[in-house]
Design a protein around this nucleic acid. Structure first.
Length: 544
RNA sequence: UGGGGUGUAGCCAAGCGGUAAGGCACGGGACUUUGACUCCCGCAUUCGUAGGUUCAAAUCCUGCCACCCCAGCCA
């Protein structure tokens, strides 16, 4: 983890609020709409909201902002909760905006009674026309002058189902000439005959975000409502609702820049498209930037939290280099990942002067942690190495195996390539080596140095694993990826996910390896089927 | 002069009138049973820009420029 950093601007606001006495308890909320899976961008918000509450001894709610039944689904509710908890946060309460519908309805009645809201019969198209443009003021709706009694009656009738979808809306009576379009008599309620995933068909009218959100915050006693930059223009309306619905204490909204990652699609809409069109296997496809995808790819919650901490919280639109995310996983995995060896593209090596029938070697299990001890590794006269670790005609700076050259087998012996066996097409099928019995790792004579060290796997005891090759969904260029969604246009960076068929990929051990392999060994494991579900490709710095 | 925001290194980001933190990336070196990891060292005479105020400005003032957001009965 990184060193303590300076306070972000939200924390400064909070500390001022606490000092001035405006706020006693810091209460935040993470309010996703359940219309998709959480992605790395949401992780920033989750960490900010939960992290801030924790820092100030407050609490943070997980609140589903489910005010639009046509987009929302139960599947998303489950996945969101799971992802939040996986990230390491425990919501003080798990709540639903839909539980406040009755409360919101009563507030709407209050606004009507105060002459601050009216039922409008204009069509959606007409409302748009009456709204004016960015530079020109809007015009008042002809229904703006309806009496309080009539508005009350009509609104009640809207709820009762007397009108068709879209026939009427409830609007706030603010200012059609406001330079802020959000204040030009915004729609508060619309009629929607859609079955809500929780309230079923109880409601025919649904509140709009701008109206519902402040009330949700107020209802829960949220002290700091933290959202993204695009809502800055909505703040005056947020405050209008809070004030006119007489909410006390009044929550306040603050905005921060959402996360953008280089070469990464972050829009929920397009991620959904990838899933719906079958470009990926699902929301949790390891290629996806969703939390469930990252989880399957082997990212740890710790790494993600560290990442969110490092990127900071500010108001400038920015695009974080994906390399920072990769750095964070590598750093955490470097601490916790058990070391295993695996070979993806095997090339058999026969050690001709190896007389023994096999032996047990010891290998570091975890880096920087001697308590973790050693693990045993089987070794016999036949092993597999990575095909790419041998070059018949080595280029300059190639330190690995080549005819006549010596190389160290990690945790084992130094071997020398004596000759090569090829098939009739000239492809190398086997390498014959000799070994130096005095060079055993850890022995007194092991001090001899050779330039290269290779990972390997004992041929006799190697365990086959299923390997699935995936390509990260990375894009070329920057900006909006909406027009680059077809698979061909996605830039490919290959990586591998090794999974044992049928195994629980989340419970699996993680490991780090340099190149890719089809066989892996874990001879001291009691598990017959080791699972390696993490692949953090170490940067390939082989220059040869 | 619609309104609201933001401009500090290749990418994030501190800085809040006293002389540019930190991280990633990058470059160099040490170490190494993987060339990884680790460890050192280096990396903005300058803060979008032009002026002004001041003993002193990234910080205050004025003008200009660039980029982002807003005209859903989405959130």
């Amino acid at each position: 983890m990184t060193e303590p950093r300076a306070r972000n601007f939200i924390e400064e606001i909070i500390e001022d609020d606490i000092q001035s006495g405006r706020v006693k308890n810091v209460i935040t909320r993470f309010p996703p709409e359940p219309n998709g899976y959480l992605h790395i961008g949401h992780a920033k918000s989750v960490c900010l909201n939960f992290g801030t509450a924790i820092k100030y001894g407050g609490k943070c709610n997980l609140r589903y902002d489910d005010t639009n039944p046509v987009k929302e689904d139960d599947e998303y509710i489950q996945s969101i909760r799971r992802d939040v908890e996986w990230l390491g946060f425990e919501p003080a309460a798990v709540l639903f905006a839909s539980d406040y519908f009755e409360y919101m309805f009563k507030c709407a009645l209050l606004l009507i009674d105060k002459g601050l809201a009216y039922v409008c019969d204009l069509s959606a198209e007409q409302i748009r026309q009456f709204r004016g443009t960015l530079k020109q003021p809007g015009k008042n709706s002809p229904y703006r002058k309806r009496s309080i009694d009539e508005n009350r009656r009509l609104f009640l009738e809207m709820r009762e189902g007397r009108y068709a979808d879209g026939e009427k809306v409830l609007r706030a009576k603010i200012d059609m000439a406001s330079p802020n379009l959000n204040m030009r008599d915004p729609v508060l309620y619309r009629i929607l005959r859609a079955t809500h995933h929780r309230t079923g068909d109880d409601w025919l009218i649904y509140p709009m975000y701008d109206y519902a959100h402040p009330l949700e915050d107020a209802y829960e006693g949220i002290s700091h409502s933290i959202c993204t930059l695009e809502f800055e223009d909505h703040r005056p309306l947020y405050d209008w609702v809070i004030q006119n619905c007489e909410c006390d204490p009044a929550p306040r909204q603050y905005e921060f820049a959402r996360l953008n990652l280089t070469r990464t699609i972050m829009s929920k809409r397009y991620l959904k498209k990838l899933v719906d069109e079958g470009v990926v296997l699902g929301w949790d496809d390891p290629r996806m930037p969703t939390l469930s995808g990252l989880r399957r790819r082997g990212y740890t919650p710790e790494a993600l939290r560290d990442f969110c901490e490092r990127i900071g919280v500010a108001k400038s639109n920015s695009e974080v280099d994906a390399g920072l995310l990769e750095h964070c996983v590598r750093e955490h995995l470097g601490q916790i990942a058990p070391r295993r060896m695996a070979v993806l593209d095997p090339l058999k090596v026969v050690i001709e002067n190896y007389a023994g029938s096999g032996e047990t070697l010891y290998s570091e299990n975890l880096p920087k942690n001697e308590q973790a001890g050693k693990r045993t590794v089987a070794f016999s006269g036949e092993i597999y190495i990575e095909r790419t670790d041998f070059e018949e005609e080595p280029p300059p700076k190639f330190f690995r195996l080549a005819p006549g050259r010596e190389v160290r087998l990690k945790d084992a012996y130094i071997i020398k390539c004596e000759r090569v066996i090829k098939d009739k097409n000239g492809n190398v099928t086997q390498i014959i080596c000799s070994y130096d019995p005095d060079s055993k790792s850890g022995s007194v004579n092991a001090g001899r140095k050779v330039k290269g060290t290779l990972h390997w796997v004992d041929a006799a005891t190697a365990v086959p694993c299923e390997v699935r090759l995936y390509d990260y969904l990375l894009c070329e260029g920057e900006g909006d990826f909406s027009d680059r969604l077809n698979p061909e246009s996605l830039k490919i960076i290959s990586s591998a996910l090794i999974e044992q068929a049928g195994a629980d990929t989340e419970a699996g051990e993680r490991f780090q390896f340099m190149r890719q392999g089809y066989f892996c060994t874990d001879s001291d494991s009691t598990k017959q089927r080791p699972v390696f579900n993490l692949i953090v490709g170490l940067k390939d710095s082989y220059k040869g």
